[in-house]
């Protein structure tokens, strides 16, 4: 079965306090030099049948209507090989 990965990230202009909290914790843990952290979501979809243009179009539609809220989030769709 082929795997398609959908990554969802908050839009750059949207404040991400969770990412900020992670970033602020890093120096305390001894990880220096990380200027910024933004946290997102990754969906791994196991697709039945061929991942052709039609299947990818449906996944794109799924991401746009459901997996991401495009008011606040951007997404990317890619085939994991």
């Amino acid at each position: 079965m082929a795997r398609v990965v959908v990554d969802v990230m908050l839009k750059p202009e949207i404040l991400d306090p969770q990412g900020q909290a992670v970033q602020r914790a890093l120096p305390r843990l001894g990880f220096e030099g990380i200027a910024d952290v933004r946290q997102g979501k990754r969906f791994e979809l196991e697709v039945e049948g061929p991942v052709d243009d039609a299947a990818l179009a449906r996944i794109h539609e799924m991401a746009e209507t459901f997996l991401a809220n495009t008011v606040i989030e951007d997404f990317t769709v890619r085939v994991d090989s």
Binding site: L15, P17, Q18, N69, V71
Partner: peptide
Amino acid sequence: LTETHLLPGAMLRNNHL
């Protein structure tokens, strides 16, 4: 209601978490 887009905008985690 914001998820349905009957109302505009979206709700996110409180800024202080």
